[in-house]
């Protein structure tokens, strides 16, 4: 396991993240699916210690994140959708600062992905399209040889072509041994590339298992994954 999430709890006045548990494995793509407001971002932020869970445990590479934040952050990459850091600074200048924080920064990988993603480092993030912003965030994460990529809604707001392109990149990364964990509310993204599914609804994990097992367990004959999830989510609301 590269990451273990155990019984994460976070209480807000109108929302509870309720004992969220799942694992991430090396060389696998895990799709974190749930409707808007289901608790995906809260879970991801808790995993990264950006918010303080009331209870529960998050471990990366066998180490608890609360005690090993700096070391763990060097080995993971995080991207939150299309948020752009320092929108008016040249990408080249941003990278020049970031790389100094990572002993593992790999200039060869940086230039490889720069070319692969067709990013012009003279541009500023403000000049990039939404899809390119996601790619830039990925580029930064990949250039320090992240072993785990945690991506919050990376495909939201992207056109179908860019989404497809991104999912293909995930597949390539997985083949290189990277664990990719991405949240989405777009079921077809999961259908296309995920090995494992973590399904969250109203703050609770409904299922966390390989996609094939998920289909076997929850789908009825002739149903697509999308049909299954819509049926399950509908059942959850009317429960």
């Amino acid at each position: 396991m590269v990451a273990e999430v155990r019984k994460l709890m976070k209480r807000y006045p109108s929302f509870v993240l309720d004992e969220v548990s799942f694992d991430l494995e090396r060389g696998k793509i895990t799709g974190f699916i749930g409707r808007n407001g289901a608790g995906k971002t809260t879970t991801i932020k808790s995993m990264l210690n950006l918010i303080h869970p009331d209870s529960g445990d998050v471990r990366f590479f066998g180490m608890p994140i609360v005690d090993n934040k700096t070391g763990i952050k060097k080995r993971i990459g995080y991207s939150t959708g299309t948020v752009s850091w320092y929108p008016r600074k040249k990408i080249r200048d941003i990278v020049d600062i970031i790389k100094r924080f990572y002993e593992t920064w790999d200039d060869t990988a940086y230039h490889k992905y720069l070319e692969l993603f067709s990013i012009d480092e003279i541009k500023t993030p403000l000049e990039l399209s939404e899809g390119m912003k996601v790619k830039l965030n990925l580029l930064l994460a990949l250039s320090h040889r992240s072993e785990v990529l945690i991506l919050d809604e990376p495909t939201s707001g992207l056109d179908p072509f860019s989404r497809n392109e991104l999912l293909e990149i995930f597949t390539k990364l997985k083949e290189d041994g990277t664990a990719v964990f991405f949240s989405t509310h777009i079921i077809s993204d999961i259908e296309k590339c995920a090995d494992d599914i973590v399904y969250i609804s109203r703050g609770k994990i409904i299922a966390a298992l390989p996609k094939a097992d998920f289909i076997l367990k929850y789908s009825v004959d002739g149903e697509t994954l999308e049909d299954t999830m819509l049926r399950m989510e509908g059942g959850m609301i009317h429960a």
């Binding site: 990264l48 950006l50 934040k69 952050k73 850091w85 320092y86 600074k89």
Partner: peptide, 16 residues
């Protein structure tokens, strides 16, 4: 603040 600097900084491998 406009550049999301605080979140960016916290995500860097440095202590808060």
């Amino acid at each position: 603040r406009e550049a999301n600097d605080i979140l960016f900084s916290v995500l860097l491998p440095v202590a808060k």
